[in-house]
Every structure is written in C-alpha cells, then in structure tokens.
Computed example of a mutant assay.
Amino acid sequence: MTKLTLVRGDITRRRVDAIVNAANSSLLGGGGVDGAIHRAGGPEILAECRALRASHHGGGLPTGRAVATTAGRLPARWVIHTVGPVYREDGGDPELLASCYRESLRVADGLGARTVAFPAISTGVYRWPMDDAARIAVETVRGARTAVEEVVFVLFDERAYEAFARQVG
C-alpha cells in the first residue's frame, strides 16, 4: 500500500523522485504551480516540453493525461506534467481529475519512481472546489495499482492542507 504524507510548502523544494506539475495543455509553462516549477527547474524543462509538443503532443496534452520530462535544477529526478480539468459553474468531470492522479502514477511507475509529490491539481485558477478535489485525489491514490511507495501531497496553504487532512484521516 502506498504511504500518503501531507506537507505544507513549496513543491519545487521536495526531494522526491518525481514532482507532478499541474500543467496547462500547452506544456509551455504558465502560472501557479506550473510557473513555479518552470522557474525553479530552469530551461531544461521547457526545452523537453517543446520537444514533446514538436513530436507526440503537437495539439497539446489532453486533460487527464500525463507525460514526464527532466526536473532540470529541481531536487527531483523527473517532472510529471498532467493537465487538470477546469471546474465550471455547472460542475466538472471528476473522472478527468481522478485520471490526472492515475496517469501520473502510471508514468511514475514507468520511470521507476518510488516517491512522488503532488500538488492539489485543478484547485487554483481551474477553480475545482478544494474539499471535492482532496476527496478525489486521496481516493484515487489509495485505489491505484502502483509501485510508488510514497505519495506526498504538497499543499500551498492551510486551507488546502486541512481539506486533504480530513480525507487522509
């Protein structure tokens, strides 16, 4: 069974095998977690993302999918980029959000990663309600078939931490 750990802080400082990036579909950087990872990791991450766009993902990475690149200057070995769904007034597709976690763990398994750090995917500018996002994240990771030994949810603020803590129990 995968161990779940919660920490408050900056995901770009985590010493893990893989850091998950809540990316946008362009894979070319953005705001929030995505921008922080690109800034801290340096140009190597962007160069590999551009190469992915030029080859397999010319139209961008689809929502719920995941791909890996180098971690550049980050203290991790890899960055796993996943595109979360946008929550709209009429709701969102929880299966797409769950897919972000499952696909990221599948990519981590392919890399041989044993420790993976996740942010609270889709809860920033994509507006997914924090309590629901935490429930989906924790249930999905707990139910995933993976060789990853530890998942660290790295939560930026106290509100996110508390929402995830209620789900982890």
Rank of each mutant, 00 (worst) to 15 (best):
V151W: 02
A165F: 01
T140D: 00
R166F: 05
Y161P: 08
R145I: 15
E150Y: 07
I136P: 02
R159P: 09
A134T: 12
D131T: 13
A147Y: 00
R145N: 13
F153R: 09
A133Q: 01
F153Q: 12
F156S: 10
A133E: 04
T140H: 01
R145H: 14
V154I: 05
V138N: 12
V141A: 11
F156P: 03
E139P: 11
R135Y: 06
A147D: 12
E150C: 09
Y161M: 12
E158N: 07
A137F: 04
A165M: 11
R135Q: 08
D132V: 15
V151T: 06
A133F: 01
M130N: 06
V152E: 06
E149M: 05
F164C: 11
R142H: 03
A165E: 13
T146A: 04
F164V: 09
A160W: 03
A133K: 10
L155V: 15
F156E: 09
R159N: 12
D157H: 03
R159G: 10
V141C: 13
T146E: 00
M130T: 09
F156R: 08
T146M: 06
D132C: 14
R166M: 05
R166G: 00
M130W: 02
L155N: 07
R142N: 05
A165Y: 07
A163C: 07
R159D: 14
D132E: 15
E149L: 03
E162H: 14
A147V: 04
E149T: 06
D131P: 13
V154R: 04
R142Y: 02
V148I: 05
I136K: 01
M130E: 07
G143H: 01
V141K: 06
V141N: 07
M130V: 14
V152W: 01
D157Q: 02
E150S: 11
A147P: 00
M130H: 09
D131F: 03
R145L: 11
V148G: 01
R166A: 07
R159A: 14
V151K: 01
V148D: 00
F153N: 07
V152A: 10
Y161R: 11
I136Q: 03
A137W: 06
A147M: 06
F156I: 07
D132R: 15
R135E: 11
Y161D: 10
E162P: 04
F164L: 13
A133M: 03
L155D: 13
A137T: 08
E158C: 02
T146K: 04
G143C: 07
R142G: 06
E162S: 08
R135K: 07
L155G: 12
G143D: 00
V151A: 14
R145K: 14
V152K: 11
D157P: 00
V141R: 04
R142I: 05
A163N: 06
V154W: 06
V148Q: 00
V138S: 03
V152P: 00
Y161W: 12
V152S: 02
D132Y: 13
D131I: 03
E139W: 06
F156N: 12
E150A: 13
E149P: 00
A137Q: 04
T140N: 02
E149Q: 11
G143F: 08
L155S: 09
I136M: 04
T140Q: 08
V154S: 04
V154Q: 02
A163W: 04
V151D: 11
D132Q: 15
R166C: 00
D132M: 15
